[in-house]
Amino acid sequence: MKLADIVCLDAIVAQLESTERDKVIQELVASLSKHKKLQGADPKMLAKAVIKRENEASTGIGKGVAVPHVKHESITEPVAVVGCSQNGIDFSSLDKQPVYSVFLLLSPTNKPDKHLQAMETIFKNLQKDDFRRFLRQAQTRQEIIEAIRDADEDAG
């Protein structure tokens, strides 16, 4: 699986407005909604579900990245969006450092294997120092798309 298969490139937010975790989640879900990627589901309800999941255990796994996600019955196929912040977001990360790159993933409840594959694709790439650095330096949506395409090409 490639990042471009799950990330909605049009919905990428290169400069997140908020530095608050919950508002960032709302911004990203709203962007997916704006680009008609929520399969008709209510963005407010989905953002609430992601925040609820995040409150149970932070997905800020360190190194400036977070992967908020939820499985929801209104979603039929995994869909992700990327948001970048120049200022840093407090995600209650494991390493207590701010988050600069956010991958938000929405998955269906009835396809756990697809969710795992999507997570694997995201983490496999976030694992690469270069990819994290490119995301962190990106100022525009186009630069983020290029970073994603390069990462996908690296993965073969």
Binding site: G62, P112, D113, Q117, M119, F123, K124, Q127
Partner: peptide, 12 residues
């Protein structure tokens, strides 16, 4: 490493 463990994609 949580990042590495998530890469396993270990299904049921």
């Amino acid at each position: 490493s949580i990042m590495q463990m998530t890469m396993l994609a270990a299904t049921c």
